[in-house]
Nucleic acid binder design. Structure first.
Lengths: 128, 128, 128, 128
DNA sequence: GTGGTCTAGACCACC
DNA sequence: GTGGTCTAGACCACG
């Protein structure tokens, strides 16, 4: 279930976004599903509705959720989104930085591969 | 050469840290080498000495640089450092987030592997 | 036929209004025709009667429909209405905004013109 | 100069966004220029800094502005953005709605063209 | 000085 | 009930 670590220095809304994205990849939340209402989610996570709202808005912007005023917020089909090359470039950059870090932490490529297999399984196979 | 992109939204000090780490991995800067003084580096990069200072401090904290009073700042041997399990955990977490992003951007494992090979080569083989 | 997209972020009543206006321009619905009753329309579109009612009210307000108590709701003749300068000004403003957007999306005047021809045809010639 | 109509039912932040986009098209604000700081803009427009912030964030999301923490918010070059087909489709839809409105307001194609010429000039030629 | 995050609470539009 | 807008004010990170 979505949860927030209040002691992390990562912003709440980013944690929530990540958490929701994971659940979608895992199939816990499926296309067409209605998300918890902003107020309900805020209550459960003990945070301010505005913060939840921000997370939902970002996800809507990324074509992952769709929100209909007066009705609620829903999960979109992951299929009908096109590749966003700009964001892919950003991810690539982030990946490089991660490898730089790995190099300095003396992590071998084998170890990285172990991580990959682990997470890929955890996320239900990354490209279903 | 170490350089800073003034129009990036990434903080200067983080860019500088990353840049130095890359050069160390590539062997452009080697263990024992003396770093440019804070003032000198600041002058070359047209940035505030405080910013350079912050970057050096972080790198010292990560056991990558060492400052000797009155002498200057030097690159440590990468061998001297023990595996920092806390930071490795953080990196692992970051790696997972990256895979979540990749999943939503519809990037295949093959594509990720291509990236890996590319960057590994660029960084001179990640675990020399 | 009038239809509603339940996954659009556009409010139902606005979709309905637009849909009716289109059919009138296309001649599918003609002056003097009786509209479906609120309840009937609501049943067909699987929506709340209040929502249909709101749409009809707006159209009445815009001099496009007229409701006669005990008889029903009818389409007015488009000739009967005088130019509503206030609404024309609003439309003009909206048109300007559209051009600003177009400019930032790098849409050429030629492309805009293509759109115009396409839609004009689809709507049956805009000023019959 | 950017200004806000406090009696309009259009949200402040949308008015601000539009206003900024216009000035960029007109060349009043140019690529590389620094925007007024959030606080400064808020003071001038007599609104809350959060509202200005929201407008800037939307524009950053649309690749029109770039913001660097601790430095400020800057205008990006309009050249280095690719066509966003999704937003273009939305605009097309909006254009169609506008023509439907125009039809009901008895606006002739000639009149629409007059508007186009007027605004195109006002915005400095839409596709420079 | 700059922008970013978060909270608390008010008011409005849609269904 | 739902989400969207706006305000006021606190606290933090970057340069």
């Amino acid at each position: 279930m979505v949860s927030i670590n209040k002691t992390s220095n990562k912003p709440y809304y980013e944690q929530l976004i990540l958490s929701i994205k994971e659940e979608i990849l895992q199939g816990v939340i499926r296309p067409g599903d209605q998300m918890l209402s902003i107020r309900e989610m805020a209550k459960r996570l003990l945070m301010n509705p505005n913060t939840v709202s921000k997370a939902y808005q970002v996800l809507e912007n990324e074509q992952i959720l769709i929100t209909i005023k007066g009705k609620g917020t829903f999960v979109k089909s992951i299929e009908d989104t096109s590749r966003d090359e700009r964001r892919i470039q950003e991810l690539k950059e982030k990946f490089k930085e991660l490898l730089v870090e790995a190099g300095h932490l003396k992590i071998s490529p084998q170890e990285l591969n172990t991580w990959f297999v682990l997470f890929d399984k955890e996320l239900g196979g990354i490209d279903k």
